[in-house]
């Protein structure tokens, strides 16, 4: 149905085809994301964006469908296959930058890392090298989010999930991290799912854009060339 998208089952890395009943509507999403590409998921609050990220991460389970990475099924409800979150090699950055309060910045970054070799280079890249021995409660929100990015990337993930990571940041930090993400995207070479309600951000960073509206992918938003201001009413005509 979404001809301009890499379809589930195609030769891509991340394939998502799920359904889950939520309070107000049923979330239905089918899309795929190639390595080195960023798929931006946009939509109004309550459209099911964060739920979709949680399903991909394995923090929640869908009612039906499959999620696979590079042909390996992480979630396959019909086959009763569900790989727990800790066995999915993912990086996840939340909006509110939660860090482990009892660990230093360096320890936070190294928490899920396979080895320590990436910690210092990542801290330098994200401009937080001088904060290595500080605790999360003694650094700013922007510095916490930079740390959260380092933490996610130090895991050497096969998939990066970003759940509105810039929305609570000051303008300077936001533009710094946006630019860094745009630069890192091809270098990382992994699929990136980026949830945002900022259409401009989605357009700037995304190779592809999935617009969610009441739990469904809105067809009129599928092609980047048709991007319009975020009117999410069902009456918006497909172009």
């Amino acid at each position: 149905m979404h001809s301009r998208y890499p379809q589930p089952g195609a030769n891509t890395m991340l394939n998502v085809d799920i359904r889950k009943q939520l309070d107000q509507f049923e979330l239905q999403a089918a899309f795929a994301c190639r390595p080195g590409e960023l798929t931006a998921i946009v939509g109004p609050s309550g459209a099911g964006k964060t739920t979709l990220v949680r399903l991909i991460a394995g923090l929640d389970a869908p009612d039906h469908g499959t999620i696979s990475l590079n042909g390996v099924a992480w979630t396959d409800i019909d086959a009763r296959n569900f790989v727990p979150t800790h066995k999915r090699k993912i990086g996840l950055v939340f909006q509110e930058f939660p860090l482990f309060p009892h660990l230093t910045v360096r320890q936070n970054i190294g928490f899920g890392a396979p080895d320590d070799s990436q910690i210092v280079p990542l801290m330098e890249t994200f401009g937080i090298g001088r904060l290595a021995d500080r605790r999360p409660d003694s650094i700013s929100g922007g510095e916490r989010q930079r740390t959260a990015f380092c933490q996610a990337l130090a895991r050497c993930p096969d998939l990066l999930l970003l759940d509105e990571p810039f929305s609570a940041l000051d303008v300077e930090t936001r533009s710094f991290l946006r630019a860094l993400l745009a630069d890192l995207k091809p270098k990382l070479g992994i699929p990136i799912i980026h949830v945002t309600h900022d259409l401009e951000e989605a357009e700037r960073l995304g190779n592809r854009i999935v617009a969610l509206e009441n739990g469904r992918i809105a067809p009129e938003w599928l092609d980047r060339q048709t991007m319009r201001p975020p009117v999410f009413a069902p009456s918006v005509s497909p172009v």
Binding site: H86, K89, L92, F94, P101, H102, F111, G112, Q151
Partner: peptide, 29 residues
């Protein structure tokens, strides 16, 4: 709020038991 920290720990590759000892217990000490 530690539930969110537990989720981060799972995402970072720690199972429930590791998360309990390495994250939950130190956080709620």
């Amino acid at each position: 709020d530690v539930k969110r920290l537990a989720e981060i720990s799972h995402v970072l590759g720690k199972n429930r038991w590791q998360t309990f000892w390495l994250v939950l217990l130190p956080t709620i000490r």
